[in-house]
């Protein structure tokens, strides 16, 4: 049984930073593969660089998650919803790793360098293979749409807890404990 009601400050910062980062990366990815405009190349290299950042953040985040106590969902949340919450969090973490890894590997399979802000270049770690690129490229897109779906469900559920149920679940990540201090008027 957890004794805390709010995620640690570190967990909250990394959660919101990654929320912003991942949504930006998803939108950039969807836009850049279509674009014929001169900003295409800039966006592509930013996508790669920030994608590597996202992988590093995901590693730190997983370490935090495994080393720190998490607030429990309130007992008012039915058991099946708790299971779904756990499962969706598992898939969110899986996607946080699978997204950048499939991106890195597909670039490697295409023989293309992944340069991080021009500071350094990741080594190519797969054989150069069009078949492998074909597989990884489709996986990268598939996982992206899976992640988009998960993010939408996640936001919907969080807002449902925060605005409808008002059970403190949303506040465990915002750190703004309205529900404790001011009773809802209606």
């Amino acid at each position: 049984m957890s004794t805390i009601t709010t995620y640690s400050l570190a967990a909250r910062i990394i959660h919101w930073a990654m929320a912003l980062l991942l949504i930006s990366l998803l939108l950039a990815g969807l836009a850049m593969v279509q674009s014929l405009e001169p900003w295409h190349l800039t966006l592509l290299s930013l996508h790669k660089s920030f994608g590597v950042m996202a992988l590093l953040l995901a590693i730190i985040r997983l370490a935090l998650r495994l080393s720190q106590q998490q607030p429990d969902l309130p007992a008012s949340v039915p058991h099946w919803q708790q299971r779904i919450a756990q499962l969706s969090h598992f898939f969110l973490y899986a996607a946080m790793f699978a997204m950048p890894l499939s991106g890195y590997l597909m670039q490697s399979a295409a023989g293309r360098p992944v340069s991080v802000f021009g500071w350094f270049t990741l080594p190519n770690i797969t054989p150069i293979s069009m078949e492998l690129y074909g597989f990884l490229r489709e996986m990268h897109a598939l996982i992206a749409w899976g992640l988009i779906l998960l993010v939408l469900v996640h936001i919907g559920a969080a807002l449902h807890h925060g605005l409808i149920k008002r059970d403190g679940v949303l506040e465990s990540m915002t750190g703004l404990n309205f529900s404790k201090e001011q009773k809802p008027k209606d």
């Binding site: 593969v33 674009s35 069009m130 690129y133 074909g134 490229r137």
Partner: peptide, 14 residues
């Protein structure tokens, strides 16, 4: 951009 899209389709078929 266009070469990349062509390559994506071709790689998927391969």
């Amino acid at each position: 951009s266009v070469y990349a899209e062509s390559y994506r389709r071709r790689a998927r078929e391969h």
